[in-house]
Design a binder for these strands. Structure first.
Length: 220
DNA sequence: GACCAGGCACATC
DNA sequence: GATGTGCATGGT
């Protein structure tokens, strides 16, 4: 059913919003840090935390690995859940140094599947964070699913309520060409749409998907 | 002051 | 396997 609809949605989003220039972050490491810090958190707060790390000159794997967890927590405080997230950054760095000699390039040489497995086995890195890192930091062709994706597709009845993460990811990956740039743009566009039109209260007026079949009550 | 934000781990049934 | 809870800041 959905191949054509998923492509149609992409066309509409791109026509309306254009290229999103994701991920908002310059280096591989900055993208990884951002992916962890943005868990259930507004991006604006993450930017403040990253600015703190830059200001203190510790936004590198080596420096963050050396920094003690309490100091790190204090620096990332604006991102919320700061104790939890300091631990998650640390667990990523511990793995990076234990298994890849602290070298992100080496980690990035893993195959797509191996990299996902590696990331998912780190405590504090779940499906969305792993896939964001795989796609945006390492350029692997993995479709990133998030809360907006579920809401938007649920509303357009492309998903059953209760569909799981892997199910949604497979829907996209089996319906679209396996292209990093397309996955990059599509996820970013869904986030853009979600922020502007698809929060918990339906407000569909002006939404580029407005005239597609959808349900203003059902969110997902 | 309530509600929300680009999740995840863990406890309990 | 489904459901509930803690984690926390800053913007609307």
């Amino acid at each position: 059913m959905s191949r054509q609809q998923l492509q149609d949605i992409y066309e509409r989003l791109f026509m309306r919003f254009g290229a999103q220039q994701w991920w908002p972050g310059q280096t591989t490491f900055e993208i990884i840090v951002g992916a962890i810090l943005t868990q259930n958190t507004n991006w604006g707060n993450v930017e403040k935390a990253i600015a703190n790390l830059k200001k203190h000159g510790v936004l590198s794997p080596e420096k963050l690995h050396q920094l003690d967890a309490d100091t790190l927590a204090e620096l990332i405080r604006p991102a919320g859940y700061y104790n939890i997230k300091a631990g998650r950054l640390k667990s990523f760095l511990n793995r990076l140094f234990a298994k890849f000699d602290g070298d992100l390039e080496r980690m990035g040489q893993l195959s797509t599947d191996r990299l996902r497995e590696e990331l998912l086995s780190i405590k504090g890195i779940g499906p969305e964070t792993a896939d964001s890192i795989a796609l945006y930091a390492f350029g692997k062709p993995v479709f990133v699913v998030d809360a907006y994706t579920g809401r938007i597709l649920g509303r357009h009845r492309l998903l059953e309520p209760g569909a799981g993460y892997e199910e949604v990811r497979m829907l996209f990956e089996s319906s679209l060409p396996r292209e990093v740039q397309l996955y990059n743009e599509y996820h970013a566009l869904l986030v853009r749409l979600g922020k502007e039109y698809c929060k918990t209260k339906p407000h569909c007026a002006g939404c580029p998907l407005e005239e597609l079949p959808h349900d203003t009550e059902r969110l997902f």
